[in-house]
Design a binder for these strands. Structure first.
Lengths: 353, 353
DNA sequence: CTGAAAGCGCTTACAG
DNA sequence: CTGAAAGCGCTTACAG
């Protein structure tokens, strides 16, 4: 593969001049420019990004460590991250943690070794030493969706509390009282928050969330199946199951079907995260929808701000409830506006971290 | 960030010795080793992969350019690719072409600039000059799922012809005669092949595939919707629509629902690519399932073979039909074995390219 | 406007 | 077993 030396030789100029042409440096004569460009063309020369990175100490690459590529939510997030990054002149390298802290650390380490300019993480746990070190060492970093408390890193996420209250209002209005949740890992912020928001919303209606109605999942399909089987085996099973993400909802559907039961007749189902397939499932699934594309773009902007020496702000966007038929709504009725829960929803916050 | 010089200074040795320790070179004294390791530990030193790559001319990185990250098939493929690569000591950088040849070229170029050791591509078109050049220039390359004819590059894919024949036999047995297809882009091999296989299979039953029953899609949701609307507006709409991938099947479901029609009562639906959600759609969707994980692993093995100077073989694995209820099967009956079509299925081929 | 030279952080023959 | 030195392909003050 042709190097800058070959181009210089072909153009009859020094490598310094070739480099200046390639980098649009102002002080280059028109003549030199055309000769260099011609040589580049005939040799099919492409600058070696590795060498450039070593010299400039920047890779124009962002690392993205997502919790699970098989989760359509993260896939959509990854897509918008890549788009926004590309428009800002950055590439992105994706690492899939598969909800495993060890794999997450593997990817963070690899990304750091490659000297990416910045790191976008949706942490699968409460913060490994490696992650904490990276944050402290000053690696430009931003958390998306999930975050690690106590670390001085901007977080871009959506707040689902108001939507969870809307969901509980919807369920309560339908007459449901025994409500259960398939929770995500307690080591993750979203894992904890969704349970807490659910519990609080229930409390506003004087309802309890007994321990037996909180199933511990891991955001992946299999755990949704297992937890739901447990719920169904209870002497008094819940009337509705709320899955804290879409994959666990898939597992719940599997378990319900395996028991020969029907949604919503035998048991209701709702999910955090909306995906295109929920429109076509049997029945369509009531879900809480996040502004995923906007989250991805905001996260990249915050990270690039940090990379380029600007502040980089935290962003919180609201999620919203999308009512479908999986909790037993009157099938004929058009989707009605959900009655507001007792407390007002928290406003969108855009705070500088 | 600490460099190898800092480690050498801290250990009281030369950088050469430090490098040898780090690379497990045999001729290092036990004493030197322990001193280096201690220095590495206290400094928290991590080798700079960029510098190493420049020097060794290898990045231990594979590039993967997939057609569409929002397509669960490619997402599953990407996952198995990353797993296998990791187990062989390689990282993978994913580029999303979003079914756009220009974006595909952008990613190929970026990946080449970064001097990845090998390239895995599922081409979105018939071969841009860039792609052709890369293949000819000797960049280790392997095609997955889709390929470019006439280029000397191994291809790892699945052969759906037998499964398509099984599908047509299934539909014919159910009494359907007017069968339509939502095709992928003619510039892609899978786009062409699935139509051809469908047409051939119909021919074996004396059935025709009229031009009006071949809708041109692009493997993305919106095109499935548009094409299906066209089918439904026909004076004589088809009895069954076969979508050449899962996203176009999603679009078809959207269109059918928008018309207020029901599957399979008003129209049947089948899809190429099976995904977990097809079990829970209304009704469950009959689909052709590819051995996606195995394809990803085989592709990586072939590519790493090429990278490391071995041959690297093409692999073709069979796809299989999974019958569900979306084409109108007797709902009560257990999934029955599909009657064999006239011709025997082509055997699995493992040819060295 | 242009070029010679230093240097980014590594690895690896070559001597000893 | 160890070290001094060259060199991977670039960029960028520093001179001129």
């Amino acid at each position: 593969m042709a190097s800058i030396k070959d181009v210089a030789a072909a153009a009859g100029l020094s490598v310094a001049t070739v480099s200046r042409v390639l980098n649009d440096h102002p002080s280059v004569s028109a003549d030199a420019r055309t000769r260099v460009l011609a040589a580049v063309e005939t040799l099919g020369y492409r600058p070696n990004a590795v060498a450039r990175s070593l010299r400039t100490d920047q890779t124009r690459t962002l690392g993205l460590v997502i919790s699970d590529v098989l989760n359509p939510y993260f896939t959509a997030l990854a897509r918008s991250v890549e788009e926004e990054a590309r428009s800002l002149g950055y590439s992105v390298i994706i690492g899939n943690a598969d909800e495993r802290p060890d794999l997450q650390d593997h990817h963070v380490r690899t990304l750091l070794d490659r000297r990416i300019d910045g790191l976008l993480v949706s942490p699968t746990d409460g913060g490994s030493p490696l992650m904490l070190d990276a944050a402290r060492a000053g690696t430009p970093m931003v958390f998306v969706d999930r975050w690690i408390p106590g670390v001085d890193v901007p977080v871009v996420r959506s707040d689902g509390r108001a939507a969870v209250r809307d969901l509980v209002a919807h369920l309560h209005g339908l007459g449901h009282r025994r409500l259960a949740i398939i929770a995500g890992p307690a080591a993750t912020t979203t894992g904890r928050e969704r349970v807490e928001a659910f519990r609080e919303a229930l409390g506003a209606y004087g309802l309890d969330l007994p321990a037996g109605y909180v199933g511990q999942g891991d955001f992946q399909t299999e755990s949704g199946r297992r937890v739901t089987e447990g719920f169904l085996a209870l002497p008094e099973p819940p009337e509705v199951v709320f899955a804290a993400d879409n994959l666990m909802a898939l597992g719940a559907l599997d378990a319900i079907r395996a028991r020969g039961m029907r949604v919503p007749d035998d048991i209701g189902l709702a999910a955090f995260d909306d995906i295109p397939w929920f429109v076509h499932t049997d029945p369509p699934v009531t879900a809480i929808s996040q502004p995923t594309g906007e989250l991805g773009r905001a996260a990249v902007r915050a990270l690039v701000d940090r990379v380029e020496g600007r502040a980089g702000a935290s962003v919180t966007l609201p999620a919203r409830l999308v009512v479908r038929r999986s909790c037993g709504e009157n099938p004929g009725a058009p989707a009605s506006p959900v009655p507001r829960p007792p407390e007002p929803p928290s406003p969108v916050r855009r705070s500088t971290s």
